[in-house]
Amino acid sequence: MDLWYKEQHTKDVQFSIRVEKQLFTARSEFQRIDVFYSEEFGRFMSLDGLMMVTEKDEFIYHEMIVHVPMAVNPAIQNVLVVGGGDGGAVRELVRYDGIQKIDLVEIDQMVVDTCRKYLPQTACKLDDPRVSIFYENGLRFVRSCENKYDLIIVDSTDPFGPGEGLFTKEFYGNCYHALTKDGILVNQHETPYYQDYARSMQLAHQRIQTFFPICKVYQFHMPTYPSGHWLFGFASKTYDPIEHLDAERWNALGLKTRYYNTELHRGCFALPNYVKDLLEGNDGQ
């Protein structure tokens, strides 16, 4: 018997993984949650039929969303993670002794519960004493925060479905307000390659630019996401991600990573021309 997980990356492009078995399926108040096991990718979780995290490549995503801002400002103490219910970003954050407090705001408790049970590889540090989990709408949580966090990580789903509010102007404005004067915002920034995603990417960039003086985008390679070419946004009030990279200090921490290093840090902000074009508001053709 052949069992395949299939996902439409566009209406004409399909991505599939042969599945050994399905480990879990349920519908939460917000979305459908599935966990599968595959020979190639290990365990993986999809939300509403879209790939979120696999055991084989999640390290790329989570290292890049955490270590880039942490290497720019290793003095970060208070961190907010919006989304990220799989716990992967938190796992990377707790490796920093300097971090005192991590608030994780995930709208869907069933995602966290599912990951604790089926994906301990990412969820393993959710019980760290510095971590507080809030099962709330991220937009609502951030609205009432002021001058509170040194770093906000937006580890969201795509902007169609429960994650929609995390790509809006009101959310970025609220984040600006919630950050300290040296605050950094890193956000899941979609892919430039396929048109629908590229449009979300452009809008997110435009909206973030209206609030933050420094607004850059960096790229990484994510094999199980549409096109494999994925972006994060880096926005901040004072720190430039390259100029203020404190490579020596970060390397002195001695953190062992599989994807991130400080040379890659400099390189990942160098973007292909069509991506630069898109970010400048052109059509990238």
Binding site: N137, L139, R140, V142, R143, P162, E164, G165, T168, K169, E170, F171, G173, N174, H177
Partner: peptide, 18 residues
């Protein structure tokens, strides 16, 4: 749905701030 309602409330708080 509550998702859209949160957007409206957050947008109003932003409009007031800005």
């Amino acid at each position: 749905r509550s998702l859209e309602l949160e957007r409206l409330i957050s947008a109003l708080s932003e409009i007031k701030r800005l």
